[in-house]
């Protein structure tokens, strides 16, 4: 490998590499600056540089790489899944159901998207695929009421884990966000400690709007963790680095396809390496 001096021009190229991975201008500049502090003017290969960049990003992401912790004492541990339209909520529930079912837990799904056409049917297919019962009402029913029933039924059955799907909603829609808050209040009427986790599902193709998504969903329904989907495409989801710095929310898992087995733990190092274009 040919060595090259880490000068301003080289740094600019690196900053641009990070920008094209959606880190955002400010975060890309900060990460590159950090690199400049330690290596400026040195002769380095491009592999060395990428490795150092990846290390710095891993340092930021390491603390948020935390799997979902299901408490077996709760019967059920209630996981509410939220996010903007089409981000991958329903599919992620299907994949997670499989993971925990395979681990020997009793898992139930609740079809809390009573709005979108065939959303209930979609979750029912995931229920069949994973052998998990699905609690549902007809489309158009009150989602908060459904959620209440679901927690009650799941508790009566002594389930270990209950996933509640919700309709996709854009975070700037105050009425829809208020509905989600109402759904949470209605869950709490059955179990005031629930939901025990609130997962915000983000699509890896998203750009800087992810900031607003996390901020508002977090305010409205106390998001406890993130899942990043669609990482099997060419989008690298770099906005996660900025989100980790700003909010420190755990990233529990990533989606890498549409099939039931396409869920992976979030690994800071692998993610960082892919962001900077290593392997």
């Amino acid at each position: 490998f040919t060595k090259r001096k880490l000068d301003d021009e080289a740094l600019e190229e690196l900053e641009e590499l990070l920008i094209t991975a959606d880190l955002g201008v400010a975060t890309a500049a900060r990460v590159t600056k950090h690199l400049a502090k330690t290596r400026f003017g040195q002769d380095v290969t491009s592999d060395e540089i990428k490795a150092t960049l990846a290390e710095e990003i891993t340092r930021i992401l390491g603390p948020v790489a935390r799997p979902l912790a299901i408490d077996p004492a709760r019967k059920p541990h209630v996981v509410l899944v939220v996010g903007v339209n089409g981000s991958g909520k329903t599919t992620t529930i299907g994949k997670m159901a499989k993971t925990y079912k395979d681990a020997g837990l009793n898992v139930t799904l609740a079809a809390g998207d009573t709005f979108r056409a065939a959303a209930v049917e979609q979750l029912k297919v995931w229920g069949e695929r994973t052998n998990c019962p699905v609690i549902a009402r007809e489309t158009g029913a009150d989602a908060a009421g459904l959620a209440y029933d679901a927690v009650e039924q799941s508790r009566a059955r002594g389930d270990d884990l209950l996933f509640i799907d919700t309709a996709g909603r854009l975070q700037n829609k105050a009425d829809l966000m208020a509905e989600l808050a109402k759904l949470v209040r209605s869950i709490k009427k059955v179990d005031e400690t629930a939901p025990h986790d609130v997962l915000l599902v983000l699509d890896a193709t998203v750009g800087q709007n992810a900031h607003s998504q996390v901020e508002i969903f977090k305010d409205m329904v106390a998001v406890s963790g993130l899942v990043l989907t669609k990482l099997d495409g060419t989008a690298r989801g770099g906005v996660l680095v900025a989100l980790a710095e700003k909010f420190g929310l755990p990233v529990h898992a990533i989606g890498v396809g549409e099939k039931v087995e396409d869920l992976r733990p979030f690994e800071a190092d692998a993610f960082a390496r892919s962001l900077v274009g290593m392997e």
Binding site: T20, G207, A235
Partner: peptide, 11 residues
């Protein structure tokens, strides 16, 4: 999606 980031060019 209007929220798409840098990947828009590639896709």
């Amino acid at each position: 999606d209007a929220m798409t980031g840098q990947d828009a060019v590639t896709l």
